[in-house]
Design a protein around this nucleic acid. Structure first.
Lengths: 170, 170
DNA sequence: ACCTGAACACCGTTCAAGT
DNA sequence: ACCTGAACACCGTTCAAGT
């Protein structure tokens, strides 16, 4: 069922209960035996997509660079699934297990840079909002800027934030 | 018609063609004589809401502070209309006249801080994405953080970005 | 220019019933 | 536990026709 939903998202850019049911050869309301809601379905798809994010292992190298790569990979993955981003944003960053894993990794990198506790959670929130927000912005292709221009803009702002969070000396 | 749509957004949190038509005592399809699309309607409402943003006049005081206040006011206004934010994000920041006015003011402040041309447009984009992204994040009230906690987090990240854009010395 | 009735092709969700 | 048929209360949009 999550497979069908993920495929539909990739092919048609949207997921409806009825379309998923049709693809499974089943009545629309049959889905409610497996999932509480449409939003629960979308949450499932979202977490499945987040599994693709590459999270640099903690403890090796510059934590600022690890954070940069983690956020850039998240941005990349979300860009490949633009229709998911509004849901991601509405859920305040998702609660699935992959999302939690990524959050935990990010907090480790922040700790390695000397940021802990409330300050770390605050910093992480800022980085997440910025990253998802940029992915949402890029999703629509109608803009005047190319994808690579947007990417360099994203990374410039990301650097500003990471410098603000960690300090330029690390 | 924009009045009816804006009211509906405030009361029920969503705008549908059919609901607007009903409020006007008119058939649903009658709206298409005045507006091309549902998205055009939403654009109209969006620009009307953006008129409420307080834009500090250019040329007086610290440009970094003016940018901070401009973005904070935008954040405030968007928070009062959470259902509009996804549309705002999808349109890459809106194209209505109020949006253009705010963009122009922001660019003047950036120029006063010594940022012009492509660098200014890039910086503005970063600030806008961050601001709208945070408004989208806050819209849903389900999160564990209070509104004022989110507000201070927003402002901390905003400071990091403005410092990154302008330099700490202005 | 502005409106109508009727229709098309969709939605998410619920309820009672079946196996 | 998992599915069905039928229904409810919605959507955006189009088309032909009326004034």
């Amino acid at each position: 069922m999550l497979d069908a939903a993920t495929e539909l998202l990739a092919e048609r850019g949207s997921v409806s209960m009825r379309a998923v049911a049709q693809r499974l050869g089943v009545a629309p309301n049959a889905l409610y035996s497996h999932v509480a809601d449409r939003t629960a379905l979308v949450d499932g798809v979202l977490d499945r997509v987040l599994a693709q994010v590459e999270a640099p292992a903690p403890g090796a190298g510059d934590p600022r660079d690890a954070l940069r790569r983690l956020m850039a990979s998240t941005h990349d993955v979300l860009l490949r699934h633009p229709q998911l981003v509004p849901a991601f944003l509405a859920r305040q960053g998702a609660r699935g297990e992959n999302a939690q894993r990524l959050g935990a990794v990010a907090l480790e990198h922040l700790a390695a840079a000397g940021i802990t506790g409330d300050a770390a959670r605050e910093a992480l929130r800022v980085l997440i909002v910025y990253t998802i927000g940029f992915a949402a912005f890029d999703g629509d292709d109608g803009g005047p800027l190319t994808r690579s221009e947007l990417r360099t803009t994203f990374q410039r702002g990301l650097d500003w934030l990471i410098t603000g969070v960690c300090g330029s000396s690390g």
